[in-house]
């Protein structure tokens, strides 16, 4: 494959501006007496957010509430509830009455929420002990574990997911190993289990690191004091360490749950496209069907759901101690 390194003029402009602003900021923060309002230099970021976060959200809102002709309509949301809604309008009177409500969109959403829940729960179960080991000062292996968790993240997540394929395939590494020791091969791929595995594998670090951070910030004297006051190690863990690490847990849950609900690609690669997740559905609305209106409505529903779950989680960590992600 050939790639052209010629960038359009505006890309150079953007990079140039970013570079100059960076230098200016460094200069200004070193030399205190400058007479320029410091907040002025935050304006590029404000502009950036405006352009690439606020404007797209407004656009999604616009598309979600308009039809293909640009007039206001709620049909896109009816389409979410009844996936056959658009089709009924096109097949003609005589057939329309024979078509029942289509549950594809709603089913896909509930399936995605369920998978995201499972993924988050599994990540927490696996991730918390890992974070405990990593943060334990008496464990020599702790810091190397941190490195081991980080190294795979140097590689793109698409590649890591594809790499799982060669492990799980019917003639893949695991099955070849099983057969070479005289066991039956098992079908590991093309099902929800493989999708869940891929999700947990990809999102686990997002659970481990927030917990690790909040655990390693904890004063070691606290659990020592608990022991001095008669707590068994188990009691110290349950009554001191875990409660104090909750902000980290909350931000871990958020960082795993959000990408899991919106997962796409993993179901296609490891699940063989046998089950669609909501992310796949939205992707196909935009790319395959070219139906931006329904695609936007689905995205909007997704965003509202995420906002609701965030506000619930926020109640558990009101001071934003887990990094204020929620």
């Amino acid at each position: 494959m050939r790639y052209d390194m010629q960038l359009p003029w505006w890309a150079w402009l953007l990079m140039g501006t970013a570079l100059v602003l960076f230098i200016l900021m460094v200069v200004i923060s070193v030399r205190r007496n400058h007479g320029v309002k410091r907040s002025l230099f935050a304006s590029p970021y404000t502009l950036w957010m405006l352009l690439f976060t606020i404007v797209p959200v407004i656009l999604i809102g616009y598309y979600a509430f308009t039809g293909t002709d640009g007039t206001f309509t709620l049909d896109n949301f009816r389409n979410f509830w009844d996936s056959n809604f658009d089709m009924k309008k096109l097949v003609g009177e005589e057939y329309a009455s024979t078509i029942p409500r289509g549950t594809v969109n709603v089913d896909t959403l509930t399936y995605s929420l369920w998978m995201a829940f499972l993924c988050t729960a599994l990540s927490l179960l696996l991730g918390y002990p890992a974070a405990l080991f990593m943060a334990d000062r008496n464990m020599k292996l702790g810091s190397s574990l941190v490195v081991l968790f980080i190294i795979p993240m140097w590689m793109n997540f698409l590649l890591r997911t594809i790499a799982w394929m060669s492990l799980l395939e019917d003639n893949g590494l695991i099955n070849s190993l099983l057969r070479s020791i005289g066991l039956e091969g098992v079908q590991l791929m093309y099902n929800s289990g493989a999708v869940l595995l891929g999700m947990v594998y990809n999102f686990l670090p997002f659970m481990v690191f927030p917990i690790y951070t909040s655990l390693s910030k904890q004063d070691i004297n606290l659990s020592e004091a608990a022991a001095d006051l008669g707590c068994s190690p188990m009691q110290a863990l349950m009554k001191v360490t875990i409660p104090l690490s909750l902000p980290g847990v909350i931000s871990g849950i958020t960082m795993v749950f959000m990408p899991s609900v919106t997962t796409f690609f993993i179901p296609r690669v490891l699940g063989g496209g046998n089950t669609m997740m909501f992310g796949d559905l939205i992707e196909s609305k935009f790319l395959t069907e070219g139906n931006w209106n329904v695609g936007s409505a689905l995205s909007l529903i997704m965003m509202v759901l995420i906002l609701i779950s965030l506000s619930i989680l926020r109640k558990a960590d009101p001071n934003g101690e887990g990094g204020g992600i929620v």
């Binding site: 996936s83 089709m87 096109l90 289509g102 594809v104 069907e289 139906n291």
Partner: peptide, 11 residues
């Protein structure tokens, strides 16, 4: 849209 709706049903 009829094709795509039906295909989603299959998937």
């Amino acid at each position: 849209p009829i094709y795509t709706t039906l295909w989603n049903e299959v998937k």
